[in-house]
Structure formats: C-alpha cells, structure tokens
Design a protein around this nucleic acid. Structure first.
Lengths: 338, 338
DNA sequence: ATAAATAATGTTACCGATAACATTAAATTA
DNA sequence: TAATTTAATGTTATCGGTAACATTATTTAT
C-alpha cells in the first residue's frame, strides 16, 4: 500500500509537504506541488481514510439505515437521501436491518466503529431505543425516518399515518363498506400504532364497531410463512368486505393469500394500503393507496441531518419534527357495496 | 470518545490487557477479564474500527456496489449478498452508482480509502475498467455481478443473457410475431450486448430480417425524459407487433409511453422483458419475463468473494465464471398474431 | 544594510488500536 | 529448594495520516 511517506521519499520532500499538497493547505511552491502530484499519479496513491479520520476525528461518511431494502418506499427514500448527501459533498453508505432490531444494532456498532459523521435511521421499532441512545451518547447526530421512538427526543421525518388511515377507511365507508379489516405491522412500531389509531377513530366516526378479530398485527417485512394471514382470514366471520393493509408488503401478501384461495380483488373483497409499489405500479395502476412522498423523506431527512452536523456544539436548534402529508390515490382495488 | 486507555486507567491495568480482553487473545485471569468487562460496560466503550484496521491492515468490511437501488433485481441480489456475508461473519455496506461511471468511481475511492476487504460490483459498464483496475492494483479482491468488463480478468456471476433473449424472441415468433422490436441498455454494458446478439440470432434462425430502426439503445436506469422512446416508437414503420425490453425498467417505461398514447398491452402490442418486478409482480402477474435468479447472483457472488479473500496470496484458484440460467415465465403480456 | 515579516518546508507528537517482545508472578519439575 | 515452565501482565514501536510548532530561505520595510 502506497503511503504519503513513499510519495515523500520519491519526491524528495517531507510527508507533511505531501499532506499539504493533498489537502491544499498551507503554502507550497508550485514546483513542489507539481512534483508531488506527479509522484502521486505515478504510484497510484489513494489516501487512507482510516488514518485520516483517526487524527481528524471525523470521517465525512454518512449512513442510511433502512429496514427493508426490497421495499420501493425505502429505496426511493434512499435515492432522496443520496441526492441530498451528494449535494453537500458527503459520502453515503447504506445498511439494511431487515426489520430486525439485532441486525440494526450490529449496524449501529459498525457505524460507531467507523466514526460516521451522522446517520439517517428508519428504526426497526421501539426496541431500537437502546442503540439509538448509544448513538446519542457517542454524540453521533441522527435523524429518524418514518418512525418515532418513544422516550427519545430527536429530529424526525414522519408521514401522517393517522390521517392516512382515516382517509382510507373513510374512502371505504363512503362506498358502503361496513366490515373493514386491518392488517398491520407490529405495535412496537410507531407508524403502525398511528395507523391503528386512525383506523379506530374513523370506524367510530362512521358509527362502526371495532372488533379485535378484524385486526391482525404482524410484521411489515416480507415473510415466507403466510399462515398468520391465513388464520386471520379464517377467523373473521362474517368475512370483511374490505381490508386495509398497513403497508405495501402486507397488501401484496394479502393478495397472494386471497388469490391462492380463489378470492378476487376487488370483486369479492376490496383492498387498500399505505405506500405505493414504486414505478411498477405504473404498469397496472391497480391498488388504491396512501402514497407517501418517499423521496422527500430521504431528502429532507438528509438535509436536517447535515444541518445538525454542521451546527454541532451550538446549543440552538430544537428538535424538529416534519410530518409529510398522506395523499390518497384512488385506483381500482376497491369496489362499492351495492 | 472512550478509548482502551480510559478503560485501562479505570480498571487499573494496561491498554494491552484491555485489548486482549476485547479480542479474546492471550491469557487473562478471570478476575481482570471481569473487571475490564465491567468498566467497558460502564463507559459504553465502542472499539474504534479505524485505529484497529490501521494496524491490522484489514477492515472486515465488505461492499456491494449496485447500479440501481430502486430496481428489484438489484435489491433482491443485495439480500442474497447480505445473507452470504452474514453467514461468514462479515459486515456489508451498500453503495448505489445509479448507472453512473463517475459515481461508481467515487464509491471505489471510498472503498479503497476505507480499506474494505473485498467488493461485489455490478459495474456501470465497460468504462468501469479503469477504476476496477485500480481496485486490482490495490489488491482489493472483487467479484463482478451481472456484467463483464472486457479486458479485465476476474470472478464473475452472469445471467445467460443471450439465451434469454433468444427464448423471448422464439416465444414471440412461435405466436406469429414477425415485427419484433428491441429496446436495450447501452452497448457499453456486456449484458446489453449479449441480449442484442441473442435477439439478432433468434431473428435469423426464424428467418426474420434485422432492422436497425427497430432497435433502440438507451439507458437501463429510470429516466424522466421519455422522448427517445417516443421518437423510436414514431420511427418504426410499420409499427412492431411485439417489443423486447432489455430490462424491467425499460419495460415499465415502454408501457408508460404506450399507455400515454392509448396503446394497450398486449391487445395492440406485445411486450416481454428481462428481470421480474419483485414481489409486486405477484399482485397481477402480467409481464412475460426472463426471470433471473437475483438472490443467487448476490449469494453466489458473495461466496466467491469471500473465498478469494480467504485464499489471499495463494496462487491457485483460476478466475471463475458462473452463468445462471435464464428461465422464461410466460404470463399475459403477449398476444398471438391471428 | 539590517531587522522584521513572510513564504516554504521540516520535526515531533499524537489519534486508538495491536504485534512483538519484555517482565514479573505463580506453578511445576528436578 | 533451586531451576524451569507457564501464566499474566506490561512496554515499545507502529499503522498512515495531520496539527502544532520549529526551522530555513526569501522578501519587504526601515
């Protein structure tokens, strides 16, 4: 591995001079600068980030931790984060926690060990609290995305989950639906809780009774075993005329299960969900969804993060909470009753 | 930031003893081990990767560079790579080059500077050669995914692009199609070249003439400006009865363009493509595709990479080229002619 | 012309960890 | 019990950079 000392030796200068050329600091004569540059080219020099960050105590690296890299909501969000990071001259790396608090903890360790300058996190859930507190303790600035964690003050970019759920339920009731089921993520995830709340409120406002049997709380990420969905469908009696899914993944899995049973959407049951299916929903715009501005989650979150990093130390800047609107896109997955 | 020296001081031992406890090396009495552990907990110690890798000359970090984080092919591949890396105890970070050779080069610099132990790369194209050579020069093991780079020997995991294209065209001709168009990625990408070759061969075998006007070579990644697709559609006269898309993104954009013109698939024109649309194609299995085993690309590639890393130095192990089969899934996006 | 300022470069110490070698204490063996 | 192992811990140098402080050459000011 070529080091500044190799360069220095070959160019007949000191290592410090080479360092100055690399970083454009201090005063260097044009002649030495040129000579050093030439030798660097010749030897294919690449600076060693680790050595550098070790002494500088900062890495110029940012991280984005998402919970499901196969979910278009998060990949679109990632593109937003990437663009914002690039605009400010930061490098961005990604990690995928797979909705697992343990994997997330591993990433947090990697991030700490790598001495990242900041982190954007879509936390796996409330149990993420301990390792987020670890980040805080080590003074690594972070911004939460899509999910809050109770007991932790921080900047956060959220979607209006409650309002979104209300809109979906209202849409269904306006078309005559009365037996509306909900399949949702784990209640340890703030957005899932809000979606449940919105669902319950909307039921109440529409004078519909809430029934535990019609609600399934499961996992937001793709799974191979659909048996919990199966038994939930069996349990509901009479069957629902409409289903609200807490995210796009769940909607897809509900459809798969229904199709396997020969039940058609929306003919026999209507379906709506949170989050679009990415560009691929363009092929056949079918699902009626709450379309969250995924790109904005990433872009705004990254901007907030970078502001935090750059204001470091200054007391000011209270925690900021950005709530992005929940817009419904009506498509063909809902039929009207009668 | 807490260091081993802080721990050492508080525990009344030397830094080296702390290091031994952390790494489980050397001999340590149970008593000191316990004491050191306790202090580490108390102070919330996190090892500094940078300092560590600096002296160890290895980071235990692996990278995966993909070209389009919003493409389900690559995100599924990423899941495979992640699982394989985890199985072998490596940490994995992701980078997204967005099909840009320049962004890719930036990532390569980050990777070099981070002293990653190895890299999985889906190269942006043939122009990636220089920075891949830089990786090679710095002895960072890498495995190419999905695309080869002429002039560079390396391990590589490919799909059978030529055969896939042939299958698609054969399928179309078997249903009576004679005017078959191709929209493809840049010819600077090996897989795109092979798909073109397969397309031409299949035309020839079916006694169909090749016509330049029926082929559009554009970019594989999502774009906002669809005008090149527009003008290509205008140019073809008579219009094709079927279109082969070089990947899923292009297929979606063709559909968008066609829909905007009021042209229906498959009623007025048939459409087939490479790569599935992820789990979301399950909602409405519509597109007839060559389904590549995305997960296996990542999983096998990662295994090959780790073998390389662990055999480091040993002369053996010739470059390996794995070609995964191209399986066609027939769905509803093709109609038969007459 | 000589002091004072400035430009250009070099030296030393350190960032946080570990390898290699050194030392001391405890346990075996002769 | 003295000699030898072995266990447990400590010291020093180093990884590849950079900050802070020298030092030397060159200008500029007086």
């Amino acid at each position: 591995m070529v080091t500044i000392y190799d360069i220095a030796a070959k160019a007949g200068v000191s290592a410090m001079t080479v360092s100055r050329v690399i970083n454009n600091t201090g005063k260097i004569s044009d002649k030495t600068r040129a000579k050093v540059r030439r030798v660097m080219e010749e030897l294919n020099y690449v600076p060693n980030h680790m050595a550098r960050s070790l002494v500088l105590q900062q890495s110029n690296l940012l991280f984005l931790l998402i919970t499901d890299i196969t979910n278009p909501f998060y990949t679109t969000l990632a593109r937003g984060a990437e663009d914002a990071a690039k605009k400010h001259g930061y490098r961005l790396l990604f990690g995928n926690s797979d909705e697992s608090v343990d994997k997330e903890k591993d990433y947090v360790d990697t991030i700490l060990a790598t001495r990242a300058d900041g982190v954007l996190v879509a936390p796996a859930g409330d149990p993420s609290l301990p390792h987020l507190e670890t980040l805080r303790k080590h003074q690594v600035p972070f911004v939460l995305l899509d999910r809050e964690v109770p007991g932790l003050d921080s900047d956060v970019v959220l979607g209006d989950s409650k309002e979104g759920a209300r809109k979906l339920v209202d849409h269904l009731t306006s078309l005559g639906h009365k037996r509306i089921a909900l399949i949702n993520g784990s209640p340890s995830i703030s957005s899932a809780r809000l979606r449940l709340e919105g669902y319950r409120e909307a039921l109440k406002l529409n004078d519909l009774a809430y029934d535990d049997d019609y609600v399934l709380e499961t996992a937001f990420e793709p799974r191979s075993d659909l048996s919990d969905i199966e038994s939930w469908l069996d349990r509901m009696d009479p069957p629902p005329t409409a289903i609200v899914a807490g995210n796009n993944v769940l909607a897809v899995e509900v459809i798969r299960t229904l199709h396997a049973r020969g039940i058609r959407v929306p003919d026999q049951v209507s379906l709506v969900c949170f989050d679009d299916l990415g560009p691929y929903s363009e092929i056949d715009p079918f699902l009626t969804v709450i379309s969250q501005q995924a790109y904005q989650f990433g872009y705004l979150g990254m901007q907030m993060l970078i502001e935090r990093i750059q204001e470091r130390g200054e007391a000011g800047l209270p925690w900021r909470k950005v709530v992005l609107p929940a817009d419904m896109i009506v498509r063909r997955s809902v039929s009207s009753i009668r």
